[in-house]
Amino acid sequence: MKLYFSPLACSLSSRIALYEAGAEASYVEVDPNTKRTEAGADYRAIHPLGLVPALEIEGGELVTENAAILQLIAERYPEAELAPRDPLGRARLQQWLSFIGAELHKAVYMPLFEKAAPAEVKAHALSMADARLGWVAARLAGREFLLDRFSVADAYLFTVLNWSQVTPIDLRAWPALPEYHARLLKRPSVARAFAEERARYARELERHAKAAPARAEPAVADR
């Protein structure tokens, strides 16, 4: 398998899942500005939209969309128990993946990263944070994970909450969220993936600064 990723983008959750599963995979970094790989190849020749993550599997098949990739990893490595096996449990997992992807990733965080977004759009996105993050915090109260055990939904939520560091969102308003984030960061798969991608993200910033010194810091979610 081959995972196409950009540092600290939502593809981080796919890396976490692969590490958690002990899967053998290679990792290809995609520059979010140029849409080129480290080797200089045009990533849009692989995925025309230029979005990450994308997971190449046997036979050259390409799977895109973060939630789909996370569920595929869970299916391929059932021994890692990254997804419930009973119907209701799977529905709960899909419920969380849908919520994180639509209501947090796209509705709240993406507009805050979008450089061209009007101020009123950013303000509207920020106004939705309280209800949505409050809802998540309430469901994490007294719980270690979103479901009964660590799942791919936790990998995704950790990744999205991490973006709060470069937005006006202060997770301390919902104590259960920074506690959850810190708790997951102690998990070996999460700590490894985060440390590796944080180092790559720092190099990405240096590379972009040299290419265009006046350019604003790239958004980790805008991939």
Rank of each mutant, 00 (worst) to 15 (best):
M1D: 08
F5T: 15
F5S: 06
S6A: 14
L12K: 09
A17N: 10
Y19N: 06
Y19G: 00
E20T: 02
A21Y: 14
E24L: 12
S26Y: 02
Y27H: 03
V30M: 01
P32S: 03
T37V: 01
E38R: 13
E38T: 11
A39Q: 02
D42E: 04
D42C: 00
A45R: 14
P48G: 02
P48S: 04
L51C: 13
L51A: 13
P53Y: 06
A54K: 14
L55Q: 08
I57F: 07
G60E: 01
E61R: 14
T64M: 03
Q71M: 07
A74M: 07
A80S: 11
P84V: 09
P87D: 06
P87M: 03
G89H: 14
R90T: 14
R90W: 07
R90G: 03
L93P: 06
L97H: 03
F99C: 13
I100A: 03
I100P: 01
G101F: 04
G101H: 08
E103D: 15
E103T: 13
H105W: 09
K106G: 01
Y109E: 08
Y109A: 05
E114N: 10
K115W: 06
V121I: 03
A123K: 12
A125V: 10
M128S: 12
D130Q: 14
D130N: 11
A131Q: 13
L133V: 10
W135T: 09
W135C: 00
V136L: 14
A138H: 05
A138W: 03
R139L: 10
A141D: 15
L146I: 11
L146H: 00
L147R: 03
D154L: 12
A155G: 08
F158Q: 05
T159N: 01
T159Q: 06
T159K: 02
V160K: 02
L161S: 10
W163D: 07
Q165Y: 12
L171F: 01
R172Q: 14
L177Q: 12
E179H: 00
H181R: 11
A182M: 02
R183A: 11
L184S: 00
K186S: 03
S189E: 11
V190D: 04
A193D: 04
A193T: 13
A195H: 02
R200C: 03
R203Q: 07
E204N: 07
K210P: 01
K210R: 14
A212D: 11
P213G: 04
A214R: 05
E217F: 00
P218R: 01
A219K: 08
